[in-house]
Design a protein around this nucleic acid. Structure first.
Lengths: 201, 201
DNA sequence: AATTAGTTTAACCGTTTAGTTAATTACTAT
DNA sequence: ATAGTAATTAACTAAACGGTTAAACTAATT
């Protein structure tokens, strides 16, 4: 059974692929057209300019990436369960979309203001609930007294970096794709264990 | 006292700045020339092509980045001291050169084979000593039984990612440069503490 | 003062690339 | 069937960009 994609979908898929790998500047409209199997003029027919096409991809990526990143944080579940849930869900997502982190990092690196306004962080409190939860846990003596931001930074670092740095890790440890995947699966449990061992008094 | 840079040094400084921020594709030779305060033709007089100029910057970066990354690993000091030394040295380096990790990641991402041959990892064993040291520590029962690669990946992640993701962290936590720096300084001790808490039986 | 080698510049060239145009084909509703 | 609209293409344009050239300037050497 062969699924026929609409032209617009074909363009999205091709543009995503090229932009992920080469960025806005490195990508060529002709290359995207070729990969989509269409004429270059058709690209401009659907998305008037390169910037608009790039913006459409960015919007799509942001819509999946940030919700997955933030959704768990404000859930109403115990602290420890939250960390286990986060790493499990997030690493699952990263295994499916390994190029997104690097894409987002470069995006925000080259255009912090645009990303800021795109996501207007001021409106929704990203980590207010988690911040409060950590404060309560510290006061109750369940975890040691650490800057709550250090906790979040550490968990994100441990989860995301291996995917951003995967080409380097593959070289250093001489890993093939399968081995790399296995190590990432293991991290779903290693990360929360590490964090809890650190935070337990 | 004003130090007069040679033209070549001025080009290096300008090219580094532009390439760090915009990458090979995003950088313009004219822009580099302007920043260096010279004519564009002079750029081609010193470094014949854009690729050669980029390659010169890459070489310079690799010469400082990788030694700092790997040197501590094979030192002949106790395991715990090694972790403390690494985070201290490495975060110091990253504070001084915050743009290098992202630059290197993109480099290796877009051209893994070139980087591989550039550094010929096969010749010098990057982590052989550390691997053996971890094995001994596990057998002696000093640390729990974990894949040694997970340990290294975790330490690198915890140290490097905050700098790669700094623009995002600054948005999420509403940090200015000073606060960010303070948090990174704190991590010099937090990271080894976290790792040791995890590894202690 | 003349010679020479290295340095710097303004003007130019050829190619690549994003974007346009005008004409053609496929589809849809009457 | 046909008119009208949407989708698609080949050919073209204008601008940006990497790179070249030839001439001018500088400083050391004879």
């Amino acid at each position: 059974m062969k699924i026929e994609l609409t032209t617009e979908e074909k363009i999205y898929e091709a543009a995503k692929e090229i932009f992920y790998r080469k960025g806005l500047d490195g990508a060529r409209m002709q290359e995207i057209a070729d990969l989509a199997g269409i004429n270059k003029a058709l690209l401009h027919y659907y998305f008037r300019t390169k910037e608009k096409l790039f913006g459409a991809i960015v919007k799509r990526v942001a819509e999946v990436f940030f919700p997955v990143l933030f959704s768990t944080w404000n859930m109403d579940i115990p602290f420890e369960a939250k960390i286990y849930t986060f790493t499990d869900k997030y690493i699952d997502f990263l295994i499916k979309h390994p190029f997104i982190p690097n894409f987002v990092i470069n995006l925000i690196h080259q255009n912090p203001d645009k990303v800021k306004s795109l996501l207007n962080f001021d409106k929704l409190p990203i980590s207010a609930q988690l911040e409060e939860q950590i404060r309560v846990e510290i006061e109750a003596g369940n975890i040691i007294d650490v800057d709550w931001r250090q906790i979040i930074i550490s968990i994100i670092s441990l989860s995301v970096f291996p995917f951003i740095g995967s080409p380097m890790l593959k070289i250093i440890f001489k890993l093939d794709d399968e081995e790399f995947l296995k190590i990432m699966e293991e991290r779903k449990l290693i990360i929360p264990k590490m964090v809890m061992a650190w935070l337990k008094p």
